[in-house]
């Protein structure tokens, strides 16, 4: 008989480990090669074009690429993460074992977050090396600070993608997640818009949207990092708590929806 004392945590970690292995074997991390090429070429040529601004341009370009490559993975891998398991019927063997549906969702989510973490770390390392090449090593802390915030943003984007994919097709889920990504960066403007319109119903609607969608500007630090700023403890702390809270809510909704699904 199996070990009766096994709790839910080891099962979640087992699923997460397998999800990470899936990402690696599906060559998700190959995007790093493109990134390394991009950052190397930038380091060599941009410095010559923008005399004195090398480090700022490298950070701007490099960290924007970290965000975009990460968002691409979070959206496109995230929306197919659970959907693929249902379509290929691999969930049949999983749920016949003592694995709860919540454990499965959280395990898959953590697996993709691990993939994104590795991706962000390697990319930040690439930007750090490129920065050192152009003599901007003093701004290294800015890169890692911005990288940390980008990773937090990607965890939210992953949770949004998984939430949509728990009840929708991958194509629609990807589209919706992309909209959340776009609107999320400008959601604070929604409150300004509501105030400009002035009507109480407009304020109610736009305030509702503002709180329903993640405010991704909490994680925007690329421009500051390019100027050599490092996120303060309070800024990073708030962003971390915000990400944990938002992810917890999104995952709870996803688990609720997924727990009621019939697998035909």
């Amino acid at each position: 008989m199996p070990n009766e004392g096994t709790g839910f945590l080891p099962r979640i970690l087992t699923i997460a480990k397998n999800a990470f292995r899936e990402a690696v074997r599906d060559r998700i991390l190959y995007n790093l090669i493109v990134f390394v090429l991009l950052i190397t070429v930038s380091a060599i040529f941009l410095g010559e074009l923008t005399a004195g601004q090398e480090s700022r341009v490298i950070i701007n370009l490099g960290m924007s690429a970290v965000l975009l490559f990460g968002a691409f993975i979070a959206i496109f891998v995230g929306v197919s993460l659970v959907w693929k398991e249902i379509e290929k019927k691999t969930v049949y063997s999983i749920f016949s074992k003592p694995v709860g549906r919540g454990e499965f969702i959280i395990g898959k989510y953590l697996g993709l977050c691990t993939t994104l973490f590795v991706n962000v770390v390697i990319m930040c390392l690439g930007v750090t090396l490129a920065l050192a090449y152009v003599g901007g090593a003093s701004k290294t802390a800015s890169i890692w600070g911005a990288g940390f915030l980008i990773f937090l943003e990607l965890t939210i984007l992953t949770a949004v993608a998984i939430l949509f994919s728990s009840f929708s097709t991958p194509a629609l889920s990807a589209l919706l997640t992309f909209f959340v990504f776009l609107i999320g960066h400008f959601s604070s403007s929604l409150l300004d818009l509501a105030k400009t319109i002035g009507s109480s119903s407009a304020i109610a609607v736009f305030t509702g949207i503002y709180y329903a969608l993640p405010n991704l500007s909490n994680f925007s630090f690329i421009l500051n990092a390019a100027h050599g700023d490092v996120p303060t403890v309070s800024f990073a702390g708030f962003a971390t708590l915000y990400a944990i809270g938002f992810n917890a809510v999104l995952l709870a909704i996803t688990v609720l929806i997924f727990s009621k699904r019939n697998f035909k």
Partner: peptide, 21 residues
């Protein structure tokens, strides 16, 4: 009862598994 599944096994029709494993 999820824990009951510790004591049973299941082989689905035309089983399909993680093909990267």
């Amino acid at each position: 009862d999820v824990q009951m599944h510790r004591r049973i096994g299941y082989c689905p029709e035309n089983p399909y598994f993680y093909d990267y494993l």
